[in-house]
Computed example of a mutant assay.
Amino acid sequence: MNLLHNAGMTAQPPFDALIAFEAVHRLGSVTAAASDLGVTQSAVSHRLRRLEDFMGLPLLTRTSGGMRPTPAGEALASGLAELLTGLGELRARCRAAASNGPLRVGVSAALADYWLVARLPMFKAP
């Protein structure tokens, strides 16, 4: 049991699990999500299980056509889409700040590994 992600211990879900959930929701399968994220199917499955444990609800169901979100999973996907859109808007804010000197970004390892690193080239794009 991972005490860090027990409901009483923290109010924030594990970021790597959110990224895995988003990929499965977007792509419809654990296999496609694993390929997209560059990890194994087992890693994606473990992250999904950790997220469901954190939320205390099933978020996805397996069907003959792939993975489908439960109503709770749809609610999470909707909120997560808004959050990721907001993070994406940070690009414009960072560009504006760059004209005032160097940009320094402090992020957790999970955010850096699973979200920021893949998007760093966009910060240099015109």
Rank of each mutant, 00 (worst) to 15 (best):
M1S: 15
M1Y: 14
L3R: 11
L4K: 09
H5T: 14
H5V: 09
N6L: 13
N6E: 13
A7H: 13
G8A: 10
M9A: 15
T10I: 02
Q12K: 08
P13A: 11
P14R: 14
P14Q: 13
P14V: 14
L18M: 06
L18C: 01
I19D: 04
A20G: 03
A20M: 05
F21I: 01
F21D: 07
E22I: 08
E22M: 13
A23E: 08
V24E: 06
V24T: 09
V24I: 10
V24C: 07
H25G: 05
H25W: 13
R26P: 09
L27H: 03
T31V: 14
T31A: 15
A32P: 12
A33V: 12
D36Q: 06
V39E: 01
V39C: 04
Q41S: 15
Q41K: 15
H46T: 11
H46G: 02
R47E: 14
R47D: 12
D53C: 07
F54V: 06
F54T: 06
M55L: 12
M55H: 08
G56Y: 00
G56F: 00
P58D: 15
L59E: 04
T61A: 15
T63Y: 01
T63A: 09
T63H: 06
T63D: 10
S64F: 15
G66A: 04
R68W: 13
T70F: 10
T70P: 11
P71F: 01
P71A: 04
E74T: 06
E74W: 01
G79I: 01
L80D: 00
A81K: 08
A81W: 02
L83Y: 07
L83A: 12
L84T: 04
G86H: 02
E89C: 14
E89D: 15
L90K: 06
L90T: 04
R91A: 06
A92S: 06
C94L: 09
C94W: 05
A97T: 05
A97M: 09
S99P: 02
S99D: 08
S99E: 12
N100A: 11
R104T: 08
R104P: 07
V105G: 01
V105T: 00
G106I: 10
G106H: 11
V107P: 02
V107L: 01
A109H: 11
L111K: 09
A112R: 03
A112Y: 06
A112P: 07
Y114W: 15
V117I: 14
A118Y: 05
L120F: 05
L120Y: 05
P121R: 03
P121D: 00
P121G: 00
P121F: 00
P121T: 00
F123K: 01
K124C: 14
K124H: 12
P126S: 14
P126R: 10
P126H: 11
